[in-house]
Nucleic acid binder design. Structure first.
Length: 465
RNA sequence: GGCCCUAUCGUCUAACGGUUAGGACAUCAGGUUUUCAACCUGGCAAUCGGGGUUCGAUUCCCCGUGGGGUCACCA
């Protein structure tokens, strides 16, 4: 059975790139009737926080990415790692290294000067476990390094990129643990993937350099082979790895601003993947069905918020009106006599994200709207003409009993067509009702704010001219 | 700098070695509208450069160049 995993570090919010990794891992597992696991990589005790873990869980749930296991925390698996570390030390596939940080910094600097890769040369590689233990006895605190085979090609077949080959001389004896109780990323990752029975690791491209290390560790420990797939990075407008400078990278922010989970999933899925047809609107079920890891593109994709806006707009427009209203409520005011559902219905076509409705609906709630009187003038109308036009509207509206937008629109249209110009009648009225350069139509506004408020606003406009 | 990954419109991307290089977003123009959206119609816009292989390269190979990643006692 195929089993994938998503292994975030709870050192920050769920990142857009992390979400895509999780989504693709999820889709790949599900379409193969496999399992999708979660694992919390919190070996960095200083930076890991329980709060972030909670945020990650909740974001994933909200986005309908569900996992099949009880997500283990690496911080609670110390004994397991220790067992493997001891085994490697005894078998000689790992060794204690007594180099100081200063020594290592120096080594790195001098290698860089020679324009060589700063690979650790393995001073204590053949020091021997016995002698090492003696020094530890005396109180020295060594780190544990992997004894990397010399000059050997590590080859793996990446599902997305094909064959990747890296020579061990470009890797060196990397540190696998600070000490027996503090293992580092590569070793915990290799051990957990093996123990969890992970068959396919789908992750970001930045992990390509880690892959041969993990494969080497896999071999040293006698684990099953894992298949890897490395996703290209999501880039910002500057074509660099997406960073906070360009809007947010945190999924939670998008959720809060009112990007719908379905839209986010749809958009993210299409960042670097497409079905090869012209269909662009995809539900999670459809994604599971049509997703193909082979069709993932190899180059980085720029995160284009305009396209997210467009997709989100489509989802908003297609959403059930009651559900949409519920989503909008946090961004709307509460005013006696005003039906927020009507506002949502009237405004939903112009929303790119749910939070937009706040700004767009403000004038509907205000007790006294303020605007520049010049705004009331349609083209080159004179004072008297505007006043006349508004009075005509006032008379008409005063006599309308059935105050819904269809009826209002009908009556307004008749009068407008009898007037000198349709715009000359409609524009001042709309501005009188909204105080805005751009707004809903007069009939829509009146239905929402009601007859009394409508008349009040028209009279106010007549008075300021 | 070493190693690795990568390269089609501004952006996301299609194109068994043979297409007028297609679609979407954005943009521009027009239509519909009192306005703004939504909607409809249309336009602009791309194969990084140089060598090969081939009857024929966006496609395969090599070399450049550009972009990115990574070289932690972070993950």
């Amino acid at each position: 059975m195929i089993r994938t995993r998503f292994a975030p570090s709870p050192t920050g919010a769920l990142h857009i790139g992390g979400l895509r990794t999780a989504l693709f891992s999820y889709l790949f597992a599900k379409q193969n009737n496999g399992e999708f696991f979660l694992r919390i990589e919190d070996t960095d005790k200083a930076r890991s926080k329980k709060e972030w873990e909670t945020v990650i869980f909740e974001n994933l749930k909200e986005l309908s990415i569900s996992w099949d296991n009880e997500a283990p925390r690496q911080s609670e698996r110390g004994e397991i790692y220790k067992k493997y570390l001891l085994k490697m030390l005894e078998e000689g596939t790992a060794y204690y290294c007594f180099c100081t940080k200063e020594e290592l910094d120096e080594e790195r600097a001098s290698l860089m000067k020679l324009e060589k890769a700063p690979i650790h040369q393995g001073k204590y590689r053949d020091f021997g476990l016995e002698s090492a233990l003696e020094r530890i006895e005396k109180g020295e605190k060594p780190v544990i390094r992997f004894k990397c085979p010399k000059d050997q090609d590590v080859i793996f077949n990446d599902l997305i990129r094909g064959e990747i080959k890296i020579n061990t001389s470009d890797i060196g004896d990397f540190i696998i643990a600070k000490d027996l109780d503090n293992p580092l990323y590569n070793i915990t990752c290799a051990i957990d993937d093996a123990e969890m029975g992970i068959t396919h690791v789908i992750r970001g491209e930045e992990h390509i350099p880690n892959t041969p290390k993990q494969i080497l560790l896999e071999e040293a420990l006698g684990f099953e082979k894992i298949t890897f797939a490395h996703l290209s990075l999501i880039l910002g407008k500057d074509k660099k790895k997406l960073s906070k400078r360009e809007g947010s990278t945190a999924v939670s922010i998008y959720l809060e601003e009112g990007y719908l989970p379905e839209a986010i999933i749809n958009f993210i899925a299409f960042l670097g993947w497409n079905p090869g047809t012209e269909k662009e609107i995809y539900s999670m079920e459809e994604l599971i069905k049509d997703f193909s890891i082979k069709k993932i593109s190899k180059s980085g994709a720029v995160f284009n918020i305009d396209k997210l806006d467009w997709i989100n707009g489509i989802y908003i427009r297609n959403m059930d009106i009651d559900k949409l209203t519920l989503k909008c409520l946090p961004f709307l005011e509460n005013k006696e006599g005003i039906d927020n559902k009507k506002i949502v219905l009237a405004l939903k076509d112009r929303l790119k994200k749910i939070s937009d409705i706040k700004e767009l609906s403000l004038y509907l709630y205000e007790d006294e709207i303020k605007y520049d009187k010049e705004l009331l003038f349609w083209k080159d109308m004179r004072n008297e003409e505007v006043k006349e036009s508004l009075k005509k509207a006032l008379n008409l509206i005063e006599n309308i009993e059935e105050f819904n937008k269809e009826n209002l629109q009908e009556k307004l249209t008749i009068t407008a067509k009898e007037s000198d110009s349709v715009g000359g009648f409609m524009w001042p009225l709309r501005v009188a009702l909204s105080g805005q350069k751009a707004s809903l139509g007069p009939a829509e506004i009146m239905e929402i704010i009601g007859k009394k408020e409508s008349l009040k606003r028209i009279i106010q406009a007549i008075n300021i001219i």
